[in-house]
Amino acid sequence: MVQTYGKKPTRMGYGDGLLTLGETDPRVVVFDADLAKSTTTDWFAEKFPARFFDAGIAEQNMLGMAAGMSLLGKTPFVSTYGVFVAGRAWDQIRTTICYSKLNVKIGGMHGGVSVGPDGATHQALEEITIMRVLPNMIVLSPCDYHESYKATLAAAQIAGPVYLRFGREAVPIISTPETPFEFGKAALWRDGNDVALLATGHMVYHALEAAEALAGAGVNALVLNVHTIKPLDEEAVLAAVAQCGCAVTCEEHQTTGGFGGAIAELLAKRRPTPLRFIGVQDRFGESGQPDELFEEFGLSAHFIVKAAREVMQAAKK
């Protein structure tokens, strides 16, 4: 069994991170676009009302206002659903924020199909791709509540734009407040030498579950928690892959151009290796319960196990 400590949505790690920043960093201001309860920025709003701005349902202007705030020395965190910020305000993020390398942090909630019943329009599946392609942008995808909290605090210390990806559903907490988190450094969460499971976001939990199942069958899977997708910790990924000779990427996101795409680019350049991709395969999401959707979209641990076996075979292991 994978060691867990209850369940909590990762977006709450963001909300609590902002509360801490409210106390510790007077530069921090928070924007939301009429979703403050859902993004949990209402906690910050209640405690620091003068530093909270509801932009209304107007995301593009929200990004611009945050850009302006950053130019006067503030550290704005803009918050809404991933589809409405990464998608709808992409050109604002690209041309106003990234081109001028402005110190704007973007909290994108509701990443993945686990959003559930709201369906495709609200399930962000493309943000990793369209954020990581932007020069100057940093992309963080924490695995659980505690890591989300730490990533939010870390984002405030980074000079320049940061995209943080969070989920809606309560997901297993697999770390503790003491677990080290270092921005830019992938964390080896389980060592192994048969297959490398490279995971991001709460897919780290499912990868750990898959690794347990594989261990039962005598396969030693390595699990690497890649919370920083950009800049990618290339050396950690290459070391994991060198040790195992094959790999599976795990993300709750389109694999095309996403986390899997980032790994594939790296391996093609530096160490061509048999690779399989767990993630959404060029489809829109659907309404349903999160666990049903994890089955429907091939994201659950048993799919990772199957992909691991396939890729080991391809690598002639």
Binding site: N61, T95, T96
Partner: peptide, 24 residues
Amino acid sequence: EVGTGSLGQGLSVAVGMAMAAKLD
């Protein structure tokens, strides 16, 4: 102060700056 060229974006930036000045 900031890169512009994709139309419609600069006024929002000026708004954000003016808000920050009010705040402080």
